[in-house]
Design a binder for these strands. Sequence first.
DNA 1: CAGCATCCCAGACGATACTG
DNA 2: CAGTATCGTCTGGGATGCTG
Lengths: 117, 117
Amino acid sequence: MTRRDTYVCGIDAAIDVVGGKWKVLILWALDEGPLRFGELRRGIPGVTEKVLTTHLRELENDGIVSRDEAFEGAVRRVAYTLTPLGVSLNEALAPLGDWGRKHLLSEHHEPGEVSPR
Amino acid sequence: MTRRDTYVCGIDAAIDVVGGKWKVLILWALDEGPLRFGELRRGIPGVTEKVLTTHLRELENDGIVSRDEAFEGAVRRVAYTLTPLGVSLNEALAPLGDWGRKHLLSEHHEPGEVSPR
DNA sequence: CAGCATCCCAGACGATACTG
DNA sequence: CAGTATCGTCTGGGATGCTG
């Protein structure tokens, strides 16, 4: 998933940034706060480490997430955080998420059920 | 571009609907009003007929656009229109479009320049 | 005019194993 | 822990040509 270089309008550029198979899931997971690599992987069932890594690199290149590495003794600790740009992206994504939840996955929801995001 | 069948949340479902390379461009073109196949193709420089066709079929299956066929004498006239669902999708897409225009393609815009969408 | 039918390819995605 | 390194698959997308 390498970014294209010519865009006709803002939407297709944004879609390109966010279009990886797991990108929005990463963004959404990080919306709660910073997460480590392993936490992220466990939080998104189905991603392989390789794909998660490349997606994170791309999001980093696009300025959406920041990667902070640190060492505690011998163990590495890498935390991923949404940048302000990432936060604003998530906000811009919200209406689309509402739309999708409402029109795409609204089959059989019991009233008391926890609503997905 | 066949739709997936399991979604974690609304956003990734929506991204899946709108994730084709030319989908948002189609949606945006149709936002002004119904267009014929040829008009659509000319309005989106770069799409091949095959891809435009498949994208349109998928959008049709998802209930985003409607296809209306008619004959005027010997010539076919096929018009594509946004359904109400498609209109609502376009509205949900607007904030993301704003975000992309602002943060992704804001390099070197002269003050008097026409602003892309 | 509005498309199918074919053939083809890059690269996104996945599975598995290994490492600093 | 947080990744690389390989290898393999799959399919979205493109090029070209033909048709009702």
